[in-house]
Structures are given as C-alpha cells and as structure tokens.
C-alpha cells in the first residue's frame, strides 16, 4: 500500500527507454548489454569448466556453440561487448566532469549542455562500431 502511494515507477519505468532522448536509450542499452555480458560470462565459465569432465564432455559442450543458434548468440555478444566498451568509456569520461559542457546563463528554450552533440555522437559511434563488429563477426562465424 505504502509503495503504491509512493507512486514509484519501479523497474518498469527504469527500463523504459522512450520519452527522454538518446542518453536514456544509451543508459538502457548499457544496462541491457551489461546484464547480457554478465549472463555470457557465467555461461562461459560453465562451458569451459566442462573440460574438467574429460575430452568428450568438452567436445559435446563445444558442439553447442557450433550451431547457427550458437553463432547468433556469439554475434550478439560481440555487439554487446563493443557497445558496452565504447559507451562505457564515454560515461566514465563524462562522470569526471569532462565533455558535459560548461555552466553558463541558460537561454530559452533551455537546451541542456550536458546533452550536447559530442555525447550524442559518441553514442551513435558506439552503436555503429557495435554493428560493424557484429557484421564482421557474422562473416567469420557463418563464412567458410
């Protein structure tokens, strides 16, 4: 009851990437790719640990990733990894107060300097690099 009255948006509001522009989309993608990479890391540790059960177990596990489905997962992991790195560097630099603009007299219609073109460009570059890396990865994995 108390929580309902507090009218907190909760996780549903937090993960909603619409309404607040490209920085909120980048925030959402960063979280999503972070969780995806965490899931991949856990799966990867589980996968490689099967080597302890002998060669056959390892070969069986490896054959799972040698399927089209396994390749698609790896292509997505490549994309998540590149985006998370690129956007993460942008966020780290910004969080030190760099690249967020300078304080000054706000002028109508009050466009926030922290949401500047450098920030937007870095986000688009991260997305583009992720797309390129995914295409390259798909070429290697699905090619001859």
């Amino acid at each position: 009851m108390a929580e309902r009255l507090s009218n907190r948006e909760g996780i549903r509001g937090m993960i909603n990437p619409t309404r607040y522009g490209i920085l909120r989309v980048a925030y959402w993608l960063q979280r999503l790719s972070g969780l995806g990479l965490l899931a991949y890391l856990i799966g990867h540790i589980y996968e490689t640990s099967t080597i302890l059960n002998g060669k056959t177990a390892w070969a069986n596990m490896l054959s799972l990733t040698e399927t089209p489905g396994g390749h698609i997962v790896l292509v997505i992991v490549i994309g998540m990894c590149v985006f998370h790195t690129g956007n993460g560097i942008r966020v780290m630099i910004s969080e030190g107060g760099k690249g967020v603009g300078k304080p000054g007299q706000p002028e109508y219609p009050y466009r926030a300097s922290s949401l500047n073109s450098k920030q937007r460009l870095c986000i688009w570059v991260s997305i583009a690099l992720a797309a390129l890396a995914m295409m390259y990865g798909a070429g290697v994995l699905f090619g001859n």
Binding site: R19, Y20, G21, L23, R24, A26, Y27, Q30, V91, S94, E95, G96, G97, V100, G101, P103, P106, E107, Y108, Y110, R111, A112, S113, S114, L115, Q119
Partner: peptide
C-alpha cells in the same frame, strides 16, 4: 548513471546532469 533524463525535463535550464558530473 548519467541517463540525462533530469536535464531533459528541467523547465528552467538548470541541467542537473551537468551539475552532478561536475560535482563528481
């Protein structure tokens, strides 16, 4: 986490996201 939503909605151009990063 610098999602910038605060600055996006501020009706007075205060830009809280900038202030937070500068404070950090």
């Amino acid at each position: 986490h610098f999602a910038g939503s605060c600055s996006n909605v501020c009706p007075k151009g205060v830009d809280p996201a900038m202030a937070i990063q500068l404070l950090r």
